[in-house]
Structures are given as C-alpha cells and as structure tokens.
C-alpha cells in the first residue's frame, strides 16, 4: 500500500483551522486516506477526512505522521496531502 511520511508544519499542530483544511482536502480525494502517528500500527490508523479523528490524534508541530491510501490516484492524493501537512497553515 502506498504510504508517505510528513512532518506537521502548522504552529498549532493538527488542530483548529489546519485540521479543518486538511480534513476537507482529504475528503475531496478519490481514495480513502488514513493517518497515523509514525511508529503506530497501520491497523490503528484513522480516517484522514475525519476532523474529529484528526483532533483526537493530537499531532503537534514537528510530529511525524504516516499517510496511507490504496487504489487509483493514491500516489497523487498522498503527494497533495503531504504538501498540505508540510505547509504552515496557521500562517495563511
């Protein structure tokens, strides 16, 4: 299964506005994307399009997360979402 790691760049972590923007973007992808903290089993991964899941994940700035997806367009979807995580969304 294609996967990518990304380092959270937003100052407030994956909360608040960054979480909303990321969840919305994940929901717009043609494939289902999951998110987990690096080092956690893939089985425990959460739905990346769920803002509530993202909030309970509690990823702070500098934390590394793993995104996974399968199917047509998975690689493009993952690339787009990694880029979003590595942007400081609080600064916009």
């Amino acid at each position: 299964m294609p996967e990518r790691t990304a380092t959270i760049a937003s100052r407030s972590g994956l909360h608040a506005r960054p979480a909303a923007l990321f969840a919305e973007a994940a929901g717009e992808q043609p494939v289902e994307v999951t998110i987990a903290m690096q080092g956690e089993p893939a089985d425990d991964a959460l739905d990346a399009a769920s803002i509530l899941s993202l909030m309970t994940l509690g990823a702070a700035k500098g934390d590394v997360v793993v995104l996974r997806a399968e199917g047509d367009g998975a690689d493009a979807a993952l690339d787009a979402l990694v880029k979003l995580l590595e942007t400081d969304l609080d600064a916009e």
Binding site: A16, R17, A19, A20, A23, E24, L46, D47, A49, S50, I51, L52, S53
Partner: peptide, 16 residues
C-alpha cells in the same frame, strides 16, 4: 468563520 467551518465538518464526520 474558522470555528463554524470546523463545526460544519464535524456534522458529516465519518468517525461520528
């Protein structure tokens, strides 16, 4: 606006 946007997303949240 930010709070309302986040709240709107919660309404159709897959986890919920």
């Amino acid at each position: 606006k930010a709070v309302l946007e986040a709240t709107a997303l919660m309404a159709k949240d897959t986890m919920l």
